[in-house]
Design a protein around this nucleic acid. Structure first.
Length: 305
DNA sequence: AATTTCTCCTGCAAGC
DNA sequence: TGCTTGCAGGAGAAAT
């Protein structure tokens, strides 16, 4: 029901920011909520930040640390994370969490923290980029150098858009966990969340509860290909925007891939491939939907393809 | 050591 | 109609 930015949605945002922000200089930065900002060097990488505004003892973040006065020279993405690179070498890492958005808005639209806008970057010559996130599972991390950014991203697995079967088999192959749990683990594979794990497993014909160690090399290969093709199709369709859908790209445009979901959100409906009723259960703490015919639970070491 | 469960937060929907 | 309850989930911390 909620709309979660996974890799395709973040990639749409990245592309939008590339056209709106690249080469532009940040004139002024406004911070409405200090507690969404941290540094990778903060305790636990700043993830366990205090939840009050401002957090007790939290510092005022210098504008230069948030790209103030700098031109944006590059916009990168790894998995679900986005980074704006400034011409002084520093960068701002943004994670959208569940309900985060990065929007390019006209300067005259009035903003406040009651709109859940937490940070606003005013651009030289007009225009503005804002980070808003009602549920505040997302956040902003300031990285003094691209090395700091790279070291943080090194904690993640390979980007799901380019990951190969050997990446998956090496990082998860021997595990007893359910294959869905492995796909959701960002240290295994970066960028896949609940929607695209279910869609990919359906496309690959693999049951979400199959233990990783029961998957053959052939299965991992089929799965890696399915992940890439599902993500590519989703990017092409502008990502998935669900009913209470927070997700839009940086211009506020919703995606259309939700209309092509084959399993996510369709429990009890019929499988579009075979007509069987789709099953649902909690797997890896997430609502999970699959087709009992297309994705046999079987203990065999081959997938259904 | 590996894996599972709990927690954070808000808005929407279902149920009485 | 208006309240309460439940649910959605990314990812670290805590528990197993």
């Amino acid at each position: 029901m909620a709309a979660m930015p996974e890799l395709p949605e973040v990639e749409r945002v990245r592309r939008g920011l590339e056209s709106a922000l690249l080469g532009r200089r940040v004139e002024r930065v406004r911070v409405f909520r200090r507690d969404v900002i941290a540094r990778p060097s903060d305790p636990w990488g700043g993830f366990a930040r205090a939840r009050s505004n401002p957090a007790p003892g939290s510092r005022r973040v210098p504008a230069a640390e948030l790209l103030g006065g700098q031109a944006v020279v590059e916009i990168r993405r790894h998995g679900k994370q986005l980074a704006l690179i400034g011409d002084a070498g520093g960068s701002v890492l943004i994670h959208l969490g569940m309900t985060g958005q990065v929007l390019v808005t006209p300067p005259r639209v009035r903003l406040s923290s009651s709109d859940h806008v937490h940070v606003a970057w005013h651009l030289e010559g007009g225009g503005r980029v804002v980070f808003r996130d009602p549920r505040r599972f997302g956040g902003v991390w300031t990285c003094p150098t691209t090395e700091v950014l790279a070291s943080r991203w090194a904690l993640l697995g390979p980007d799901a858009l380019t990951a190969r079967e050997t990446d998956l088999a090496t990082r998860a192959g021997g595990s007893s966990r359910a294959v869905k749990a492995a796909l959701l683990d960002q240290r295994v594979l970066a960028g896949v969340g609940n929607i695209y794990s279910d869609e990919s497993l359906h496309a690959a014909g693999i049951h979400p509860e199959r233990a990783c160690r029961t998957l053959s090399a052939e299965c991992w290969s089929v799965l890696a290909r399915a992940i890439r093709s599902v993500l590519e199709a989703a990017i092409e369709a502008g990502g998935s925007t669900l009913q209470d859908g927070m997700f839009t790209d940086s211009a506020g445009v919703a995606g259309t891939f939700q209309a092509r979901h084959n399993v996510y959100g369709r429990a009890g409906n019929v499988c579009r491939s075979c007509g069987q009723t789709l099953s649902s259960a909690i797997v890896a703490q997430r609502t999970t939907v699959w087709c009992p015919d297309c994705q046999p639970r079987g203990l065999s070491t081959t997938c259904s393809h």
